[in-house]
Design a binder for these strands. Structure first.
Lengths: 390, 390
DNA sequence: TGGACTTCGTTAGGAAGTTAACTAACGAAG
DNA sequence: CTTCGTTAGTTAACTTCCTAACGAAGTCCA
């Protein structure tokens, strides 16, 4: 466990790539061929990496392909949702090793089940727990407990299933989902955007330069506290906006506008959107109005951050019927900003938590060594005709 | 001009410190004593550094003190304000070398005057121009012109006075002022905060992790576009908030509430605040109401960013009479967030532009090499009894 | 089937920086 | 005035990683 600096850098690149040849590792880590060779030898000796075959390009000698070895280990991601608990175990290259879902009280059971399915012998390097609460500070260490008011007891009930001695990190679920959209969702290729989640509550995940913005109190993106209503003669209420834009409010306003001829009044947002999709006039009007309100919320975020892209998610926000209305209101009020729907839906939070857990897990191996890719070459882009042998 | 990597790192540390001994340079740059010795020799040969004396601590051998040499050069900062143009010439360690102020049309004249006072022979390494406009992208190179609609002609009139071949950067004036507060103003010691400027217009400078947030369109912090008025039945207007919170609106509302017994109605914000300071009831009421509105604006920023600190600046915002009202409304609506007044006032923008220019100027020497301080030691803290010889 | 060509990986020599030990300079105590 | 402890700066051996050149292992084509 005494890796050289260059071996650590190579490991980071290898974990990010999943599998890579030595030339690719050299380009990714900004190291020369001889250095990579010795680093790879070091990693193989520690069983952190292993050769998984060879690839041949169009011409030239075939290159050995390396992947993570058994000692690389795994990480665990837990999404303690309001109703459902989702758990994922991943390798350090991000591949899914085991998965489980359960109702809220079963959290500990699901965690145990997923842990059992992970390869034995490989160390568990990190655990990330996503909760729907403001995270005061990153809680770390064995048995660390988040200082969260709402999610505290739930976290404790789940934590008993975790093996001792593993670093546990707690993160806001909206931030996790934002990270997921960044790396494998609608914001891929960006490095700055806002993830706006509209459901029963509302929240904004802010990603700037590839990093989640947490804020001084861990409350960045808690847009429930935007001043609303805001007008010359009215006093804003604390968390007035959440009440106004949350799912309940949408249903209540739809019910107020509902007429006898409209048929049975929808009792869930899902039903309301379905009716609107079928062309139901009153439902469409309610959805359109709500889209404008969400557009205003997006405009508030854009006025402060100018993120260039806003990804809409959450039980309500993810519905594509909102897009035109949101875009129109945002364009009317603010800067040119793309608006798209979440690409990951409900699983975004676990996926993001897993991303975070993988990053933390890699850090436990590399000790935070950064890789700086070589300026000129970059990864070799193979256009075609790559043959792989195992 | 062919410095080694370590010499560049040492130069960056030296410029940041102004003067430093070799042990201090070693700690600051994260290099060993022998390496620093050769780096300093290199810098002395290039006249980028020179020995300026010695210091003796309480015990032990006295150390040589180094400062910037004549070849280090200077930078220029220009604040193209709405009425006044401020210009500063600085050395790369930030010391003020020359200063000038003029009315708006005299910009070119002031620039020429300040340039003449800079030491001859030393290269001008960078120019930063602060304008009251959204900067689409960082305009660079000789004779580069910002793509700013409002400030374009003014910039051109000033640019004729700049020597050719010097990199010119354009930056938003609120962002500049925020940087000034960060480094030598009310936000010293922080690395994340918001600088809220309230004058005729309104603007927010966002600093996160010591970096100014610019946004996808360079429009981060353009809070004029927060949705206002925002209520169930009212449609927000584009830039409605600026109209509502700007100086003109404050005076108009004060005038509306003014009674005959109140004496002459104030025609400037300054006069209104003076009356309020004397205890004038109607004036106080108007100021108090406006403080609440500013508190709401601050709450909007806090809801998205959770900066932990908001610095109030600008012709109106800098008045301390607003503080209690702003704090109260912000506390009512949002997270625990400090609110203080600007410590630099009107000169903040040039000071920040100079900071930025110094940073750019250093980059022209170092090529962007980062210094990573040594973990354990840090700068030697001399508690007392330091004698300096020249 | 045997060059010609291309790419992978290793070997050898050199550049840059680090640690460790030593010398130099300075103040204070005896 | 000498001696001792402390800090500054230099010298020397060692480490790390780079460049350059070479051998190895492939594909393509006549």
């Amino acid at each position: 466990m005494d890796l050289s600096e260059s071996a650590r850098a190579v490991f980071a690149v290898l974990a990010a790539a999943g599998t890579a040849t030595r030339p690719q590792l050299a380009a990714g880590a900004g190291l020369s061929k001889p250095t990579v060779s010795s680093a790879v030898a070091e990693l193989e000796a520690a069983e952190l990496a292993e050769c998984s075959g060879t690839v041949s390009g169009a011409t030239g000698r075939s290159a050995a392909v390396y992947g993570l070895g058994p000692a690389a280990g795994a990480v665990l991601a837990v999404d303690l949702g309001p109703a459902v608990t989702r758990v994922r175990g991943c390798a350090l290259d991000g591949t899914l090793l085991a998965e489980g879902t359960g109702t809220r009280p079963d959290a500990a059971e699901v965690v145990r089940h997923v842990l059992k399915e992970l390869p034995t012998g490989a160390p568990l390097r990190a655990v990330v727990v996503a909760v729907g609460d403001v995270i005061t500070q990153d809680a770390e260490g064995a048995g660390a407990r988040p200082a969260t008011a709402k999610a505290g007891p739930l976290f404790d009930a789940m934590a008993v299933a975790l093996p001792p001695g593993v670093p546990v990190h707690v993160e806001n679920n909206v931030n996790c989902a934002a990270l997921a959209e960044l790396h494998e969702g609608a914001a891929r290729g960006r490095d700055t955007f806002g993830y706006l989640r509209i459901g029963v509550g509302i929240g904004l995940g802010v990603v700037i330069g590839g990093q989640v913005l947490r804020g001084a109190n861990g409350a960045a993106g808690e847009v429930a506290r935007l001043p609303y209503p805001w007008d010359g003669d009215r006093e804003p209420r604390r968390e007035g906006l959440e009440e106004h834009i949350g799912a309940r409010s949408l249903l209540r306003r739809a019910a107020d506008a509902w007429r006898d001829a409209d048929g049975p009044c929808p009792r869930t947002a899902e039903r309301l959107f379905a009716l609107a999709g079928e062309g139901h006039v009153t439902a469409r009007t309610a959805v359109g109005r709500h889209a404008a309100e969400i557009g205003r919320l997006a405009a508030a975020a854009a006025a402060v951050l100018d993120p260039g892209l806003i990804v809409l998610g959450g039980a309500i926000g993810a519905d594509p019927q909102l897009l035109p209305g949101v875009r129109a209101e945002l364009a009317r009020l603010s800067w040119p900003t793309e608006v798209v729907n979440s690409a990951l839906g409900e699983s975004g939070t676990v996926v993001g938590a897993a991303r975070l857990a993988v990053a933390r897990g890699i850090e436990t191996v590399t000790g935070g060594v950064e890789a700086k890719p070589r300026p000129e070459s970059g990864f070799q882009t193979v256009t075609g005709g790559v043959r792989v042998k195992h």
